[in-house]
């Protein structure tokens, strides 16, 4: 049994310790907001937070998260920064097909949590690992900038 928390709730899973966290989240916990895109940490659709850091759940063995806190897109609106990012995404109307957006939003939230006012270069560096085939990158940048402004307002 491997124990950890997902969005603040304790979970215990009986799984091969080498199973990637992504498939525990999806196939075992049936939380489907976290997506499979490549399986080799190339696209970032599977991005979740592990103790606050953005990680690629498709290459993270579930054994590595034992005793740690995992946060997924489903729990994001429970944090004020997550809500701010989601609202910015709505204001800019970022998504098209939407498949990559959970990963985009999780990566953006991790960035803004550590650095509420990133430069363009810092945004590009944080977001470069998350692919979008619909081409929403410029709207993602605008949304991150918008969220950053809002975060400034609340200070």
């Amino acid at each position: 049994m491997i124990s950890f928390s997902v969005n603040g709730k304790p979970v215990k899973v009986d799984a091969d310790p080498g199973t990637p966290l992504l498939w525990i989240i999806r196939d075992t916990l049936h939380m489907t907001g976290t997506k499979y895109g490549c399986g080799i940490a190339q696209c970032g659709a599977c991005t979740v937070h592990l103790d606050g850091n953005a990680i690629r759940s498709c290459v993270t063995p579930v054994s590595m998260v034992s005793g740690k806190n995992v946060n997924t897109i489903e729990g994001l609106s429970e944090t004020s920064i997550g809500k701010t990012v989601q609202n910015a995404w709505k204001d800019i109307d970022v998504p098209q097909c939407g498949y990559c957006q959970s990963g985009q939003i999780m990566a953006a939230t991790a960035l803004l949590s550590k650095n509420p006012h990133p430069t363009d270069a810092q945004i590009a560096s944080a977001m470069d690992g998350i692919l979008c085939r619909c081409g929403t990158y410029n709207r993602i940048r605008s949304a991150i900038q918008k969220a950053s402004e809002k975060l400034g307002d609340t200070k």
Binding site: K35, D93, G98, Q101
Partner: peptide, 21 residues
Amino acid sequence: TKRLDTPLKINGSAQFGLDVY
């Protein structure tokens, strides 16, 4: 006009084929 599907696509609730169990 803002997309009607955006709210579903920012919180993981939009259902794709891969999400059907």
